[in-house]
Write a protein that binds this DNA or RNA. Sequence first.
DNA 1: TTATACCCGACTATAATAGTCGTATATAGT
DNA 2: ACTATATACGACTATTATAGTCGGGTATAA
Lengths: 131, 131
Amino acid sequence: MLKLTRKLEYALIALRHMQTKGKLLSTTKEISDIYAIPQELLAKTLQQMARLEYIDAVQGPHGGYRIHSTMLEISLTKFIEDLEGPMGMVDCSVTSDCIQLNNCNIRQPINRINDNIRSIFSRINLSDITH
Amino acid sequence: MLKLTRKLEYALIALRHMQTKGKLLSTTKEISDIYAIPQELLAKTLQQMARLEYIDAVQGPHGGYRIHSTMLEISLTKFIEDLEGPMGMVDCSVTSDCIQLNNCNIRQPINRINDNIRSIFSRINLSDITH
DNA sequence: TTATACCCGACTATAATAGTCGTATATAGT
DNA sequence: ACTATATACGACTATTATAGTCGGGTATAA
């Protein structure tokens, strides 16, 4: 309950690391070594963030990644959903194939809480974590 | 990310159901039938809540469960942690055996967010969900 | 004494997450 | 052109957490 996945954790660690390096490039190996993150796993996450244009990739020797400037204004909600898909306390806040649905007696109160959390996460920017 | 487990979901549904019945008893079968919850699974959760004194159990024929009056003032944080153990976005907010720990660069910002969420959950009472 | 309903631990199944591997592509340096 | 380094990417396996099942027990009203 409420726990970040490793993927998100690694992504945040990497972003923060890159942040401290400004425009200098960081390699996967460098980051995985420093923070003891499995290299191949981190690699995939960095590649995904590159596709999402959170970071810029430079290929070849002396290549690596650096933070994309607009990334800082991304909200935590968007970040999480970009990397892992929709977020919601109950499935019916995401899809609508629950056998209960109309019968369900907690749907509305839970969805209110859900909205509260989302609104907190929406007010938090990635820069609040990686600054 | 952020999703309630079925156990919590079933527990909340059951509590709300019992709430509407006041001092009348509800059986496991009754609740599992109405909301299409696997009976044995619900049974375990109700038993756990009985041990925790969230609900009172009455044994024998015509037995069942009813809500314990003080339950209403329990916070969502306590409820979740009573049923599922400690809640935290990162392990280091719970235990301290992470190989990173001092090396970790996101610990503090994440823990701030974590505290925010906890404080929201602490201000929400079960009665807000089951009323 | 029988039927009903709670009690409880051990077990299995399923699904989500975490991690690995093989191969391909880009490119700087020589 | 060749080599070493680094990203790109899909398919695979392993691990863990959650979900669900089962078998046997106890309490008690009728």
